[in-house]
Design a binder for these strands. Structure first.
Length: 274
DNA sequence: TCGCAGGTGGTCG
DNA sequence: CGACCACCTGCG
């Protein structure tokens, strides 16, 4: 049993655990009993939020308050973001209200890189299974927490030196070779900092590259265009679903520096009500 | 059985 | 360039 620290953070607003953890930005948080439990940068964390008291309570194996404040992006004013987006594009109002309490987490760049390679042409339950399997086999064991043995997300070294047949056993499919190559490249070159550097990776195209910039590097004007955004942009603005260029330009012009937030609200709203 | 799931690389015209 | 199309895998 790992030692658990309690951290109590007051005056937390615009926060909703369901919306934060289910909006598709992260894959290692799961509802266990009445709270969400996740593994973040080698720390296990149980998160509970009391809206009436505006208090976020964390039970965690590590990370100090400032680490978790940064992870949950508590310094950002999401009311201001929603207000700005609603004024710029009134059609998004319903989505902004529906997804109130979404926050774009500050996640580890390597974990995001690998996780979103796995996400391509895939579905969320299988993505999560793949990532858990990868962590169990190649990640460091943290110990038993909240009734389960938990493992950190693998380090680049571990995945770079993984054998392809072993990765294949985890049912990663054709993404296995992308993962190994990406880990080796990350190890050699360090974290890719720009869209151009990320998209140069084998197995990373425009959609995944934008997700990596948005979720792994806090480039909040990035606008990932996936199958749902195509439906949304067709539905709301009449774009042909093949016109990714047009949608991207629209996002730049209408959502501007908050395009990434807009994408999350819209994606979550439409996908959740499918 | 077949299409789909938060796409991408390869190959044509 | 832009329009196909195959692709690991699991599920309904």
């Amino acid at each position: 049993m790992k030692k658990i620290n309690a951290i109590r953070i007051e005056n937390v607003y615009d926060f909703d655990t369901v919306h934060i953890f289910e909006c598709g930005q992260c894959f290692r948080w799961n509802k266990e009993d009445d709270a969400y439990v996740g593994v973040v940068s080698g720390h296990v964390c149980k998160a509970e939020y009391d809206a009436s008291a505006a208090v976020l309570t964390l039970e965690t194996t590590g990370g100090d308050e400032s680490f978790w404040r940064n992870y949950f992006d508590l310094a950002t004013d999401y009311s201001e973001i929603r207000k700005t987006l609603a004024e710029a594009e009134p059609g998004t109002t319903a989505a902004l209200e529906y997804g109130h309490g979404i926050r774009i987490l500050n996640q580890d760049p390597f974990e995001i890189l690998i996780s979103f390679i796995i996400s391509q042409n895939n579905n969320i339950p299988r993505i999560k299974k793949n990532i858990e399997a990868l962590s169990a086999k190649y990640g460091e064991e943290i110990g038993e927490c909240f009734g389960t043995t938990r493992c950190a997300f693998p380090e680049p070294e571990a995945l770079a030196s993984a054998e392809l047949p072993d990765l294949a056993e985890l049912r990663l499919g054709y993404r296995a070779e992308y993962i190994k190559a990406a880990a080796a490249r990350f190890l050699e070159e360090g974290a890719p900092e720009t869209y151009e550097q990320v998209i140069a990776y084998l197995g990373i195209g425009p959609k995944v590259a934008n997700c990596i910039m948005l979720f792994g590097h806090r480039k909040v004007d990035a606008f990932p265009v996936d199958t749902w955004v195509k439906h949304i942009m067709n539905d709301m603005y009449g774009f042909n679903e093949s016109d990714v260029r047009g949608m991207t330009q629209f996002a730049e012009e209408h959502f501007g520096r908050y395009a990434g937030y807009a994408q999350q609200y819209l994606f979550y709203y439409y996908r959740d009500r499918r």
